[in-house]
Amino acid sequence: MRTPAQLAEIWVYLSASPLLGLTVTLLAYQGAWWLSKRAGFHPLANPVLLAVAALVLLLTLTGTPYATYFDGAQFVHFLLGPATVALAIPLYTQWPKLRAMAGPLLAGLVAGSLTATVSAVAIGKLFGASEASLLSLAPKSVTTPIAMGIAERIGGLPSLTAVLVITTGILGAVSARFIYQALGIADHAVRGFAIGVASHGIGTARAFQVSEQAGAFSGLAMGLNALLTALLVPLLIPLLRNWL
């Protein structure tokens, strides 16, 4: 049996290697996935939310800095790129239906994208958020790397934007089903597209849990909204400034 001092040495060794950050990420996610599955994939048992909460608790309790954790977790983070490219496959499968709905989809996209930016900034202002926070809120409905790029360009805080983006994703994934039930929206194409506009990849992950059709429409909405928001927000911010 090793002495406590030797155990501490093992801890020092492990906490300096990427192995630990990567392993705890996968363990936390599998635990969260198991819980979510046991809850019948109920939207409130969101796997991202559960895994993030468990990891934040673990890192806080062990006094591990985020940068140390991310050294290992970056291997998982990296896969976001190839996963985004892979969205082309469900998009291809659903193409006939997408093309038939092209006009309404485009109108829904523009309405949703404008609502996302304007309402976030307006509500934040109404409740007295600081200017840096308001600018970081503006691109919160699009996928992390683009949102961070937009925040930087308009004078927000990119790393705060990343957190707001993830929170928006979780909120959309958790609440969408209840909104659709209240509004009586049953079509999986409409359901998928709306969650993709509002909450990017985390909404898309949720949509794939529901059906492949919802997932494909969500993936498309996420890609289109990324493009539209990147073009719109830098134009909208000066207008919003005058108006607020």
Partner: peptide
């Protein structure tokens, strides 16, 4: 693609922990 997209949620976990 199906395997990767089935666990798309996992890929957001590292950035989400940045909330701390």
């Amino acid at each position: 693609a199906q395997n990767l997209l089935q666990h798309l949620s996992l890929l957001f976990v590292p950035a989400g922990v940045g909330v701390m």
